[in-house]
Design a protein around this nucleic acid. Structure first.
Length: 891
DNA sequence: AACATTACGTA
DNA sequence: CGTACGTAATGTTG
């Protein structure tokens, strides 16, 4: 049936339709969080989705104007001369639209000196010659000349969603001429928007009447002297203009184009790529509308071809041991259960082979002998396995004291290493991306779904396991291609084991102390609140920025602060600034209230997170931070206060657990600056670290040309801010803001800095340039971060990407190093059969719980292993503290 | 109920 | 107009 359906080509005038979208949608409502306008992109894509859905074209192309200079302006410089300059807000959206189209596999075309309509006319002509149906979507009436039995123009009436179908009949009804006659009519009537004057006194009605009488413009002009009255004279007076109009209005049908119509089929969708593009545009609803489409036959074919049936092996008939022994490749492991460190559980486990065979076991019904076989196999280092988020697997299996070894792959970690910027790495997305399988389709008949056999949970789990086995093959190849396979097998996978144990162990807290702290902070906050109400004479929700804006700027008439989306900011820096200006006590009370409520929230969060064993078990996220860092959730133990005295008191609550002697903290000193010295090879900076001198004093003495001893504290703090800022892509403006100095002074400071440390400047420059060429940055271990925005036309996006490119190798290399250190420390503790254990990692710091009598050995071991984790051109310095609480161990 | 916005804690 | 994160409250939207 589908073969007999005629091919249908959809041709879109990109500029024209984007422009409609731009004016139809309010720019304020359609912008990314960074302020990039996206209303035209949104409007265009929305229209495109509708067309794809309603019209089901088999071929699509979008044509764009190459520029305002065309062969028409060469013939007639005034052509389109009255057009207003394209708004900046609009211009930058064209590349974004092209990006979206490319991710959708839709061909875009543009050609120097040629307008989009000429490209469309050429393609339209070629396609209708080949017997295809053609839809032309354009807001330019010149395209009406293309209309015939095969070609329909969709002309926007208002906005981008209301399109008029201009068939030959519709054209005639509207203009009383045939499509072929339309350019003749337009030549006489003129087109204001193209700056083409028509014949005065001649409108569409008159022009149509004449064309009805004479057939076409040539015949009409040949008999121009027969036409009487004022309009006849007017026509004769403007014949040259009419001829010019006619020539300019004629669309070219013989433009040389890069691709024939046959190649304009919609390409298979790479959902991950589309996701990435839509993410960057911050589109949500359009994504759903888009993926709900089923217009792409090529995609369906690819999807179906990749799908195979999953066959569940019946353990009543097949011996588990034999089935396992027959495995010649890593088996996929999928489970059903709680994969968190607290109260983990597992009730179903599936093992899958890439050929589609799967075993699913229900622990509640598992025969004793099968369970023994399964346990032995899972614990067998030589039996290769692959999973998805193996850390969770380890938690779940630990609930039944099941040991897991021989895991050679983790599809989630692998996907993260390949594309560390993605939001999530859920299995269905990976299945779609790497295998073209749609795991979200649960019904049997659905195209692209695995044939589940039945809809039970067990079958779905078996399918997951099969998918994992197949993913391993694809992703292993991908990682090998970017030299990241070792990163997975030698770093991230071992780290997963370590993290699982750290999470399971947790860190002990003093719960009664936390309760006390909460009470203290509450009382303090309440006092500040009352004092705040007192000073303005009424109560207000101090936690509501909106209400505070009313109080500060309307009621008290304070000077306006920095603008934000909803008005003016009330953040701490702005409030402190206002306090300096006005001296109003309300501000001081408000700041105090903010501080203490924030601390109370942190404490209350810790209380809520304390497990029944009196310890807090955070979850470390290993696939979240794009640079390679870990992050910590539920609760986040990587942002426990330390900077203020009151905040530090919270660290007292983290204590050594029963049966252990003390806590030990070990942190790298200035690791990012050391990495900067290493990567840049700057001799001055390397010397700074080898001199034994305090880093900032050393650098300060060079920048300010004084002796190290004469570096004042104000000089030192400026140097410190600048040194750290450089690794983030700090600008002179940002530095001036932070240090409260003039921009000129900040710029001078940076110039002096770079004069003395030219290697740093060269390095920072090179790292961005290389990334622009290769498309990615790399850490010392070869961990990549892709930054496509480095070549963006939008300055904002490009500069953002440049700062990321500066920072990623530095932050990421530090992450690499501490991960190595963790593995080394973990291995050393095990080798030396010590009972002390790693509890937390806070980016450049490790926290260890030391068993009785082990302090000396553990201190030496941690120091040594951390310092030797990497060999850089500067030493890695480690400072260690010991104490009964995290606070006490911090100094 | 889900999402966005604002603010703020850490390295 | 400095990177990388997570959490909580308020307020808006469906």
């Amino acid at each position: 049936m589908t073969n007999s359906a005629r091919s249908k080509l959809l041709l879109i005038d990109g500029h024209s339709m984007a422009f409609r979208g731009f004016f139809a949608l309010p720019v304020e409502k359609f912008a990314t969080s960074t302020g990039v306008a996206t209303n035209a992109v949104y409007g265009f894509l929305s229209m495109l989705i509708t067309l794809l859905k309603e019209e089901q074209p088999s071929h699509v192309a979008v044509a764009f104007d190459a520029g305002s200079h065309t062969f028409r302006t060469e013939q007639y410089p005034e052509y389109k001369g009255t057009r207003e300059k394209t708004p900046e807000e609009f211009k930058h959206q064209i590349p974004l639209i092209e990006e979206v189209l490319h991710s959708l596999g839709i061909t875009t075309m543009s050609k120097d000196l040629i307008e989009a309509d000429d490209i469309i006319a050429t393609l339209s002509f070629e396609a209708s010659q080949a017997g295809m149906d053609v839809l032309v979507c354009s807001g330019d009436r010149d395209t009406l000349q293309l209309v015939n039995d095969r070609v329909t123009v969709l002309y926007p009436r208002r906005g981008v969603s209301d399109l008029a179908r201009m068939t030959p009949e519709a054209v005639y009804e509207k203009y009383q001429v045939t499509p072929e006659q339309y350019p003749d009519l337009a030549a006489m009537v003129g087109e204001t928007s193209d700056n083409l004057p028509g014949v005065p006194g001649v409108g569409p009605k008159t022009a149509a009447k004449w064309l009805g009488q004479y057939g076409d413009l040539d015949s009409l002009l040949a008999h121009a002297d027969e036409i009487g009255g004022k309009v006849g004279q007017s026509l004769r007076d403007h014949i040259d203009q009419v001829r010019l109009n006619r020539r300019l209005g004629q669309l070219l049908r013989d433009v040389e184009l890069p691709a024939p119509v046959a190649e304009l089929t919609i390409k298979p969708w790479d959902r991950a790529e589309i996701d990435q593009v839509l993410d960057s545009l911050q589109f949500r609803t359009l994504r759903e509308r888009l993926f709900a489409l089923d217009t792409n036959p090529a995609n369906q074919e690819a999807t179906t071809a990749g799908a195979g049936g999953v066959e569940l092996v019946d353990l009543e008939r097949t011996a588990l041991a034999e089935w396992l022994a027959a495995a010649s490749e890593p088996l996929g492991i999928a489970i059903e259960g709680n994969q968190l460190p607290v109260d983990p559980d597992v009730w179903l486990l599936a093992l899958g082979r890439s050929d589609g065979e799967a075993v699913v076991v229900d622990f509640a019904q598992l025969r004793t002998e099968d369970e023994a076989v399964l346990r032995a196999w899972l614990a067998d280092e030589a039996a290769a396995k692959t999973g998805h988020g193996v850390k969770g697997l380890l938690h779940a299996l630990s609930s039944r004291d099941i040991e897991l070894a021989g895991v050679v792959f983790d599809s989630q970690l692998a996907a993260y290493l390949a594309h560390p910027d993605q939001r999530t790495y859920d299995l269905p997305s990976l299945a779609m991306r790497y295998l073209g399988l749609d795991l979200t389709v649960t019904d049997n008949g659905g195209q692209g779904s695995l044939d589940l056999g039945d809809e039970s949970q067990a079958s779905a789990l078996g399918a997951d396991a099969v998918v994992l086995a197949r993913l391993e093959q694809k992703q292993r190849e991908e990682l090998a291609g970017i030299d990241s396979l070792e990163l997975l097998t030698d770093l991230e996978l071992p780290v997963t084991w370590l993290l699982a144990v750290m999470e399971r162990d947790g860190i002990a807290v003093d719960s009664s102390y936390l309760a006390e702290l909460s009470k203290d902070f509450a009382a303090h906050a309440e006092n500040s609140a009352q004092a705040a109400y007192q000073s303005i004479g009424h109560t207000v929700n101090l936690g509501s920025p909106k209400q505070l804006q009313t109080v500060l700027f309307d009621e008290l008439g304070m000077p306006k602060t920095k603008k934000i989306k909803t008005g003016y900011t009330t953040d701490a820096a702005a409030l402190a600034d206002l306090y300096a200006k006005t001296g109003n006590d309300f501000l001081a009370h408000l700041l105090a209230y903010r501080d203490t409520t924030k601390l109370k929230q942190t404490v209350d969060g810790l209380i809520r997170s304390t497990a029944s064993d009196g310890r807090i078990h955070t979850t470390f996220q290993q696939t979240v931070a794009a640079t390679g860092r870990l992050s910590s959730t539920e609760p986040n133990l990587q942002n426990i206060p330390v900077r203020t005295e009151a905040g530090r008191q919270i660290r007292r609550a983290f204590v050594v657990g029963e049966g252990y002697e003390t806590l030990l903290t070990a942190d790298y000193s200035q690791i990012e600056m050391r990495i900067m010295a290493h990567l840049s090879g700057d001799t001055g900076l390397i010397e700074a670290f080898n001199s034994g001198e305090d880093l900032h004093n050393f650098v300060g003495s060079r920048v300010f040309s004084v002796a190290p001893a004469d570096v004042s504290s104000s000089m030192r703090s400026k140097i410190k801010a600048m040194s750290y800022g450089l690794a983030y892509g700090l600008s002179a403006f940002g530095l001036s803001k932070q240090l409260n100095i003039e921009v000129a002074e900040a710029r001078g400071l940076m110039t002096d800095y770079f004069e003395r440390f030219g290697g740093v400047r060269d390095y920072l420059h090179t790292v961005v340039e290389e990334a622009r060429v290769t498309g990615y940055t790399e850490t010392i271990l070869g961990r990549r971060r892709y930054l496509p925005d480095l070549t963006s036309d939008s300055r904002q996006r490009r500069e953002m990407a440049e700062r990321m490119a500066l920072n990623a190798p530095i932050q990421g290399s530090a992450a690499d190093i501490i991960k190595i250190a963790m593995l080394q420390v973990g291995a050393a503790l095990a080798e030396e059969k010590l009972d002390s254990r790693l509890l937390l990692q806070v980016h450049d710091e490790l926290i260890v719980e030391v068993a009785p009598g082990e302090l000396e050995r553990v201190t030496a071991l941690v120091r040594g292993r951390m310092a030797s984790a990497a060999t850089l051109s500067v030493p890695l310095e480690v400072s260690v503290g010991v104490g009964a609480s995290w606070l006490a161990a911090s100094h």
